[in-house]
Simulated assay, not measured.
Amino acid sequence: MPIMPDATTAPSPPPRWTQDAALALVFLTRLPLPPIGPLNGLLNGPLADGASARAMGWFPPVGALIGLAGGAVYAAAAALHLPPLAGALLALMATVRLTGGLHEDGAADVADGFGGGRDPARKLEIMRDSRVGSYGVLALVFSVGIRAAALAALPVPAAVAALAAAGALSRCGLAAMARVLPAARRDGLAAAQGRPAMATVLLALLFGVAIAAVALGGLALAALAASLLAVAAVAALARRQIGGHTGDVFGAAQQAAEAAVLLTLSALIGAAAIGAAA
């Protein structure tokens, strides 16, 4: 006779990676978790130890999904025969809608704090102010303008691939930044998140490289180098300005890396097109 399972036995917990992936999705986007499926209910109870730090390993896949959403909007705009710049701006608007402007807000706060503060304490105080100053406004204008201009220079298939790759690559170096730099504050979201393990850093890089390779082919290494250099530059600036990282610094690093990837791809693809026409 088969042994019937005990009805009082608690179901086995889901794999830890599912909670990490769900946490990355919830943190980076405004998307609700699906009411059914493996992600349902994963974040209703207490988080596993280190889940917030481990979630950074899943930032690149979530970023790729955000980029693909923007790419779909860009392709739809092209199908409607809208000008490329208008399509690029609409695509970026779609990504901002998905993220709630999380990274743009961080970049604006960093620009205000680093530009307006006289010492680290004052810079951190300004960064916590919900008001946006002239440095922050200019940072947003340049961030959106540079990314839109680079995107508008790409043909539709390349633009869709570039947005997916940029979404992943601009987030694959954030775990490394969190591991290398100390938190600039003892409180705050970045400090509470904790220092990711090296395995998390490697997972994020692996995801970023794999997604870029699929989307970009031979251009993946150049795009990866551009993203990591941008993140490293923001990290070095943050260390000098405030002694470490904050959540706003992560947002600024993402914006800088995404712009670097799109600029690199627009330059390389444009040069290849010129060479083919010659």
Rank of each mutant, 00 (worst) to 15 (best):
A184F: 11
G116W: 01
T99E: 06
V96H: 12
L228A: 01
A225W: 04
G106F: 06
Q254A: 14
R118N: 08
L151P: 08
L80Q: 12
A220S: 13
A150D: 05
L28Y: 02
L154F: 12
A178E: 01
A158N: 10
Q19P: 01
L68N: 00
F59D: 02
P196Q: 03
A184W: 07
G100L: 07
E104W: 13
L33Y: 03
L151Q: 05
D187W: 06
A76G: 08
P13Y: 09
A121G: 14
L228G: 00
G87K: 08
L140K: 01
G70S: 07
L163G: 01
A226H: 03
L31I: 15
T99D: 06
L262R: 02
A150H: 09
A175C: 05
G57S: 09
G45A: 13
A199W: 11
A111W: 08
A192W: 14
G208I: 09
R171D: 07
G70K: 01
N40E: 14
R239C: 09
D187K: 08
S12T: 15
T95H: 00
P5G: 10
S12G: 13
G113S: 11
A69Y: 01
L138K: 10
L25G: 07
L23H: 12
G113Y: 08
G133T: 05
G101M: 12
W58D: 03
A51P: 00
A78C: 08
Q19H: 04
A88P: 02
A86T: 15
T29D: 10
D119T: 06
G41Q: 06
A232T: 13
I146L: 15
L219H: 12
A184S: 10
A272M: 12
G188P: 12
Q193N: 06
P61M: 06
A252G: 01
D6K: 05
A183I: 02
A225P: 00
A260I: 05
F114E: 00
A164L: 13
A55P: 07
S134N: 06
A139R: 06
L189F: 14
A24D: 05
T246F: 11
W17C: 10
V201G: 05
V234S: 07
L124A: 08
L90A: 15
A252N: 04
T246P: 03
E258F: 01
S266N: 03
A220D: 01
I211N: 10
V156P: 11
A233M: 09
H103V: 08
A164I: 15
A233R: 11
L92Y: 06
R131A: 15
R240Y: 01
E125P: 01
M56N: 11
A233P: 01
G63C: 11
A22H: 00
R118H: 14
P35F: 10
A190E: 11
A204D: 04
V180K: 10
V132W: 00
A178I: 01
A22Y: 04
P83V: 07
D248F: 01
A168I: 03
A277W: 10
A153R: 11
G145T: 02
A230E: 09
V137S: 11
G173L: 04
A260H: 03
P60G: 08
V62L: 09
A24V: 07
V234Y: 08
L102N: 09
H103S: 07
P38W: 07
R118M: 08
R128H: 14
T99Q: 04
L216P: 07
A77F: 06
W17S: 13
L85I: 14
L89S: 09
A72C: 14
P182M: 11
